[in-house]
Design a protein around this nucleic acid. Sequence first.
DNA 1: CTGAAAGCGCTTACAG
DNA 2: CTGAAAGCGCTTACAG
Lengths: 355, 355
Amino acid sequence: MRIPLGGGTDEKLRVHERPTSFDIAYRAGVSQSTVSRALRGDPNVNEETRRKIEAIARELKYKVDKNASNLRRQRSNTIAVLFFEDPSPDPSQINPFFLSMLGSITRACAKRSYDLLISFQKFAQDWNEDYEDSGKADGLILLGYGDYVDYRQHLEQLVEQGTRFVRWGAVEEGQPGVSIGSDNFNGARIATEHLIGLGRRAIAFLGDSSNHAPEFSERHRGYSAAMQADGLPESFQAAGVSSEEAGAAAALALIESGVPFDGIVAASDLIAAGALAVLRDKGFDVPRDVSVIGYDDIPAASFVNPALTTVAQDTWLAGEKLVETLLKMMQGEVAESAKLPARLIIRRSCGAKKV
Amino acid sequence: MRIPLGGGTDEKLRVHERPTSFDIAYRAGVSQSTVSRALRGDPNVNEETRRKIEAIARELKYKVDKNASNLRRQRSNTIAVLFFEDPSPDPSQINPFFLSMLGSITRACAKRSYDLLISFQKFAQDWNEDYEDSGKADGLILLGYGDYVDYRQHLEQLVEQGTRFVRWGAVEEGQPGVSIGSDNFNGARIATEHLIGLGRRAIAFLGDSSNHAPEFSERHRGYSAAMQADGLPESFQAAGVSSEEAGAAAALALIESGVPFDGIVAASDLIAAGALAVLRDKGFDVPRDVSVIGYDDIPAASFVNPALTTVAQDTWLAGEKLVETLLKMMQGEVAESAKLPARLIIRRSCGAKKV
DNA sequence: CTGAAAGCGCTTACAG
DNA sequence: CTGAAAGCGCTTACAG
């Protein structure tokens, strides 16, 4: 038999245990069911009774046991974020853009009283395994840049298993599941148009255009569209991954190719930062000789010299949208993929007058 | 009665439900207890039986229900990270140093099969409330720069409530609970000694030295110790919080004070970055006229121009140590506060020869 | 508006 | 080495 907290001589022995709804019930002189109802906000509870129960609960610092509640209700009120990042094995080195996304997702979850479980995932593993399947989370948010060709298989598996998930990334036709992403095409297009508007003509794109990195290839297509609209010649330098090193290598290759250039649109800020360093070393003046634009608006973008003009993805909105969409799916409603508007942040590296 | 998965004509109806240990038991022809034992690695299970059970579990993609398991075992196998950051209301703007810590903590947890719950906490709230008390987490990690005077009350409350927690921050005598932190005193001391070694004599400290920010005041004391050891005059400019703005304001105040200076030790990289920008604007050449050193080694430190010499806190080790210490406490062992060694990262802003 | 009771899916003493 | 049974702390139909 459960001896209610403070209900007898056993009080001292039990003082460090967490109170249960039975303890509250005992003190309030009602049944445990009524305590549960009162605390869950069931309208079928007498106002006075409710107040009494709430007061006692507060006094005893009672908190509903989530494991019991979740088990009974068959849901966890928890969302899991799965991070996967191919090129970075060290989580402390993770792309700052995703870290900022994580902050926004956390806020969006907290607002809705959802808990957030976080995990860095190896590519090889069964993603579903540790989360939805074990009842730890009701839904999954997928975050990261990775090789989409590998990635896609996992997505299909998730869809097949009926997992509720939403991913951040390029939004394209025929993709498995629901995706939320920046409007990469238009983001890169307005960036390129901005450079053209500044009088640049020989603009190179630094990034990847393969189907392994869909957001990068969307950005590349946006760049192409802007160039073609003005009949300008395109120029492309591969930078496989999003890192300073890759950006530096691509910029070096561009310089060594001998192809003239007066503008660079980089597929990411990290790539742009690497390019900036190489340009400086090689005696190019940015923005006088070359205008440079990045993508992501990572915190470091305003620290580099010259400060980097870039395309910002609204992480605040992104987090909100990801969580909102996932919650919709979890409630069985239809949810749709969405592209979020991208916004040009003009700093010094493009050479525009201060706006 | 539970109809086992695939055990009869009901198969189709149940195909999308998660299998339970009863389903496995039915198929394996053993009792549910044996399934539970086999899957938990109980040695008292026949090897052949175990293999059979494991095979079926794999086939059905069975995963132990965490809510049920946690409820029964009265533990959650989960650690919660509570972020609190006073000056930054927007989680997506959170200090990059802590984001990097978060990455390390995640890795350290994953390594030990612990889940990680994350939460950004308002200062005013009852910290314990949502985590340990509701059975969602077995222990807490506290992360953030904040006003220690407010903060301390919360710590005392946590100690009083018997919450298992460990915090990242300044390690000082007489503090409530267990803390893991960088050796701020020695970190700032070696930074200051490095500048002295480069021939700097008029070195100013930019930061806070009040008891509201213990790590900053420890750094200030480290700076003082180094200056005093060489009989050099100290100079101090307040920068209340760790931000570029505060750093810029402090640097401006330093310049306007008319006190000559040829070196700056900043209490954080963000402060240093703000100072760097003001120095450039005001025509100082860094590192020729002024040597600058920051603290934290945030990702942006290598992006600023000139790249920032700084004191690195080993986030990899920090995450490991935090989790390890917390786990110790959770197992009822005695755990002690610890200072982690700080390391000088020499870049261009101090003017040293490339090492 | 309230109570008694069943049951969520496990783990683990207890008995063999 | 294995099974039957109790129980973790809730939520919620059901009956009043």
